[in-house]
Every structure is written in C-alpha cells, then in structure tokens.
Amino acid sequence: MISDVVAVPADRLTLSGDFVVPEGARAVVLSAHGVHTSRTHPRVQALDGELHRAGFGTLSLDLFSETEARQAEPAQGQPVDVEMLGRRLVAAVDWLKAQTDTRALPVVLFAAGAEAAVALRAAADLPDRVLTVISWSGQPELADEVLDRVRTPVLFITGGQNPEAVPAIRQAADRLEATRELADRVPAPHSVREVRTASHRFDDPDALDRAAELAQEWIDERLPSG
C-alpha cells in the first residue's frame, strides 16, 4: 500500500493531500475539502478507511493552500468561488493521471457541502475523465450554472434528519436528467439516496457506515466488469 502526504500543483499554488493506494486498487477517489469539510476530520478519515478496505485508492485534497488557509476562513459566510476551486480539482485529476500508481485507474469525485458543487463543476469540464461524482450532504445548487453540462453519473446522498436539503438535491438531480434527455444521449444514471438516520453532518457512525456502503455500491456499478 502506498500512503503519503503529497503536494499537488494547481492554479500556481501547492495543495496538500493525503494519498493512499492499496495494492490492487480498482479506482481512485478524489475527495475535496477546505470549505465545509476538512481532510483531517475523523468522519472523513473513517470514510477514507472504508474506501481503502473496499479496494479503492484515495486522494483527500485541501482546495486551499496553507497560506490561504491561514489568511482566511472561507467557511465563515464568505462566497465560495466554485469556478476557481473547480479548476483546482481539475488540476488534481491531471495530477492523478500523471502518477504511476493511479494513471490507469478510473477517477471518482467525492465531496460534501460546497465542495460537492466544486466536484460537479470539475465533472462538467471533464466528461470523459471522471467515472462518477458522489455528493454526500452536498450543496449542488451552488453549481447551478454548470448542471446543464454534467454528463457524468452522479449519486446524491442526503441525510434523512436534514429534510431542508432534500428539495434542492432532488431539483438538481431532475435537472441533470432533463439535460441528458435534451442532449439525446444514452442516459447515465443519477440517483438520490437517503440515509434516514443521518443528520446534515453524518455524525452518527452507523449513518456514516451506510453512506460509505452506498458509495461503494455505486462505484462498483460504474466500474467495467471483469
């Protein structure tokens, strides 16, 4: 198993990430952090551990440089520059495709909160280089202007104890479905799954385990057979 703290060049900056690739990995999951989630949070690390045990590599990436993080707290009411952060996530996909251990692996974008909107933005720019996007407790409405360009399958996981988030997520999923139909393309699956016991933060360990299970099942369904 490869396990290292890495420096990923993006947008003329260096972004820090935790890079883990189990032997025989079947895909690599790129998770974005720094706005509403932290790569060092115990629940994020628990999710990464579940993914490793399922045979997936992970790159948990801070979307802000250490200097930016010291200068400001983007989560405290400041607008989220989804376009800028999306470019950084695209650069991280480029970085993964340049690494010996992950260049041949399908890439999954995985994010919560505002970072989920960033992942959708990056997926819109990389229709042929991202296997799927998984948004857990995400805010897809922040990516409203690019939803029409998303051609990548998306799984939206929401908490049943956070009912106010469900309408926005379902609206985004419906718009993605309509976009595929208008484009006259083979429909790629999009789904909204609810973890009934989960709050907005997925703090309950059982709810977190269920979210990890849903993510694993979704990725497995997207991977080529054999």
Rank of each mutant, 00 (worst) to 15 (best):
residue 226 G to C: 06
residue 214 L to H: 14
residue 225 S to C: 04
residue 204 D to A: 02
residue 174 D to F: 13
residue 15 L to K: 00
residue 104 A to P: 01
residue 9 P to C: 06
residue 106 P to A: 06
residue 26 R to L: 12
residue 226 G to P: 05
residue 166 V to N: 03
residue 220 D to Y: 04
residue 52 H to G: 04
residue 177 E to L: 12
residue 180 R to T: 13
residue 185 R to V: 15
residue 215 A to R: 02
residue 158 T to E: 11
residue 208 L to V: 00
residue 204 D to I: 04
residue 217 E to L: 07
residue 62 D to E: 15
residue 43 R to L: 01
residue 123 A to I: 04
residue 71 Q to E: 15
residue 117 A to I: 09
residue 24 G to H: 10
residue 223 L to P: 07
residue 43 R to I: 00
residue 133 V to L: 14
residue 190 H to D: 07
residue 68 E to P: 02
residue 196 R to I: 07
residue 212 A to D: 02
residue 211 A to D: 03
residue 19 F to G: 13
residue 32 A to V: 13
residue 34 G to V: 03
residue 64 F to K: 06
residue 180 R to P: 01
residue 140 P to T: 11
residue 173 A to K: 08
residue 200 H to Y: 06
residue 30 L to N: 06
residue 9 P to H: 05
residue 6 V to Q: 10
residue 79 P to T: 11
residue 212 A to R: 00
residue 97 K to A: 01
residue 6 V to Y: 10
residue 220 D to F: 07
residue 179 T to V: 10
residue 98 A to K: 14
residue 163 P to N: 00
residue 136 W to Q: 11
residue 2 I to W: 11
residue 38 S to I: 02
residue 185 R to K: 10
residue 138 G to E: 09
residue 210 R to T: 15
residue 192 V to G: 04
residue 44 V to G: 01
residue 206 D to W: 00
residue 111 A to K: 06
residue 69 A to P: 01
residue 128 D to S: 14
residue 44 V to D: 09
residue 108 V to T: 01
residue 69 A to K: 10
residue 73 E to V: 08
residue 144 D to N: 14
residue 174 D to T: 13
residue 78 Q to A: 14
residue 7 A to E: 15
residue 77 G to A: 10
residue 113 G to E: 08
residue 54 A to D: 03
residue 52 H to Y: 05
residue 127 P to I: 08
residue 55 G to Q: 11
residue 80 V to Q: 01
residue 157 I to R: 04
residue 14 T to W: 02
residue 166 V to K: 11
residue 224 P to T: 07
residue 121 R to A: 07
residue 35 V to P: 06
residue 84 M to Y: 12
residue 186 V to K: 12
residue 222 R to N: 04
residue 108 V to K: 07
residue 6 V to G: 12
residue 219 I to N: 01
residue 28 V to C: 08
residue 20 V to N: 06
residue 65 S to L: 09
residue 88 R to V: 07
residue 51 L to P: 02
residue 10 A to P: 00
residue 24 G to Y: 03
residue 39 R to E: 10
residue 75 A to W: 15
residue 135 S to W: 01
residue 93 V to M: 08
residue 220 D to K: 02
residue 12 R to D: 14
residue 169 I to A: 08
residue 145 E to W: 11
residue 132 T to H: 00
residue 139 Q to H: 15
residue 74 P to Q: 13
residue 196 R to N: 13
residue 190 H to P: 02
residue 110 F to I: 05
residue 125 D to A: 15
residue 203 D to N: 03
residue 54 A to P: 02
residue 15 L to S: 04
residue 87 R to D: 13
